[in-house]
């Protein structure tokens, strides 16, 4: 790679999912993130009870993210060939875990806003 710019990265992701799906996913992720901040600001606090369920969901998000990447790229666990591969795998898993935790927390807070008030 000669230069890795933000624009190139966007182009890479558009290619991975197709332009429509990529931007749809990006918008969904943006809405969920905004929703997360919205419930935080609205409730003025992090609810640890809601966070518990969010944490329980994390391993599922991690596994789903890894399987999704493997499915998109026609590859599997047997292809892990070196330390950098393990790091990439863990990064994908971490992203999946955090993503689903934020999603779970936001959905819970939106559905049951006053349970702990």
């Amino acid at each position: 790679m000669k230069e890795l710019t933000f624009e190139t990265l966007i182009a890479v992701f558009e290619e991975m999912f197709g332009r429509g799906l990529f931007w749809a996913l990006a918008i969904v992720a943006g809405i969920i993130t905004l929703g997360y901040f919205y419930v935080l600001v609205r409730d003025r606090a992090v609810s640890w009870r809601k966070f518990l369920l969010a944490q329980i969901s994390m391993p599922f998000g991690a596994i789903a993210a890894v399987l999704f990447v493997q499915w998109v790229t026609n590859s599997g666990f047997r292809d892990i060939g070196g330390p950098v591969d393990a790091i990439v795998l863990l990064m994908v898993a971490t992203a999946g875990a955090i993503g689903i935790a934020v999603l779970t927390y936001t959905v819970e807070s939106l559905i049951w806003p006053k349970k702990e008030a």
């Binding site: 230069e3 624009e7 991975m16 790229t73 892990i80 060939g81 950098v84 990439v88």
Partner: peptide
């Protein structure tokens, strides 16, 4: 010189996008 998954990921998903960006004069 190591057979790596990350190098495969680049070939499979990142290369065409980088190529397309190059065609447009942006990479």
């Amino acid at each position: 010189l190591e057979e790596l998954w990350i190098s495969w990921l680049m070939k499979e998903v990142a290369l065409k996008a980088t190529y397309n960006a190059m065609l447009r004069g942006k990479a």
